[in-house]
Structure formats: C-alpha cells, structure tokens
Amino acid sequence: MIQTKNLVKTFIDGDKQTTVLKGIDFRAESGEFIAIMGRSGAGKSTFMYQMSLLDQPTEGEIILNNISTKGMTEDEKGQFRLNELGYVFQDYALLPDLTALENVALPLLMLKIPKQKAYEMATASLERIGLEKKINNLPSQLSGGEQQRVSISRAVAHSPKILFADEPTANLDHESSNKVMEIFKELHKQGQTIIMVTHEEEYGRMAERIVRLDDGRIIS
C-alpha cells in the first residue's frame, strides 16, 4: 500500500520557483497495477521520484505500508528502497561492469542473502524473463529490450512490495515493448504491486487503473 497526502514539489533555481507537483493525494492498494499517464512535462517522473523516496518532497507526506516516511534519513530511505521497493528506469540503468547475472544479484547480496543463494535467485529471475542464455553477458552485449528485462529482473528479484517503472518501454521497439508489458502483466498476476508511467494508451490500458496527471495535479 502506498499513499501520498498533499504532495508538493517545488524546484528553486535562483529566484525562479517552479512548483511541479501541486498537492497530490493518491493511494494504491497492495496488488494493484496502476498506469500513470499524462503529457510530457506533467510531472509524472517527479511524482515517481517522490514515491520511490529518491527525492525529498517540499510538502506533504508519503506513507508506505502504513509507515510514514517523513523524517527518514538518507540511509534509512536507502535501506527502505533496498528492502521494499523496486525501480525500473527508462534507460535501464544497468551497471556496465557487471554481467546481467551480477546486476540482478547485487541488491540481493546487499540484502545479506548468501552469495550462492543470491546467484540462484538471480538466475531464476532471469530465467523467468527468458534470458537464461545471456546471464553472463555484459549490458553492452545485450539489446535494449534485453537490458530492460534485466533491469526488471533486478527490480523484482527480491520481491519488493512495490515496483515502480518510469516509461519502461519508451526506448524500445514494439516487439520488445510487448515483451516487457507481458512481464508486467505476469508479475501483476502473481500479486506484484506495480506503478508504471507510460504515455502509450495501448500499454496504459493493460493496467487495472489509469491515473492521469496534468500540470502537477491528478485530473482523473
């Protein structure tokens, strides 16, 4: 469960102030698959960064699983992200020195899962998305679609409470995008809470619920 109350984000750059999120009240229940949609510049990414604790809102509150995240230190937020959240970036954001398997295993190792177990879990996770043949490839040896699938594997390997994905298909061709969306649907079937930003109606309709954002406000 995630809830935001009157979420405001204002950027201050010299004398210029830009309020990008203008008081967002939002709630997603466990197991929901939500698509956040809206035109470019509406504040979708900014909203995602607040919810995933990558950024600090100017005003308002974020409640994750009935725990208020207000007043958490950076380290605590990091620990929370590690334990409870998964994040898929538009540009995959894989670590270039690590193989696909190592990329997926890294957060598991950080969670103090023993090395062998972590690698088993990572392998299983990569098998589920059909990349079992490429687990030892470096990101540079994978296509964009494959990299994004590794990125999803990494985000869900530790079974997070909530999976965030910010335009996961924006850089992909149609076929790869479909594969990625199939994975999300499958994850959702297994009970994974997903909050995904997309600007493609086709993919938005695959979610249970669409939340439309415009000019920093939820309009529907």
């Binding site: 380290d75 990091g78 590690l82 670590l95 890294l106």
Partner: peptide, 16 residues
C-alpha cells in the same frame, strides 16, 4: 557518477 547514483538508487549503501 551516474552509476554511483544508480547503485545508491537501488539501495546499495554509500559505504560499499
């Protein structure tokens, strides 16, 4: 820097 950010983003502790 970007990869350091990503690592921190996915919860890898700064110490590491």
């Amino acid at each position: 820097r970007k990869f350091i950010g990503i690592m921190k983003g996915i919860g890898i502790h700064g110490n590491v």
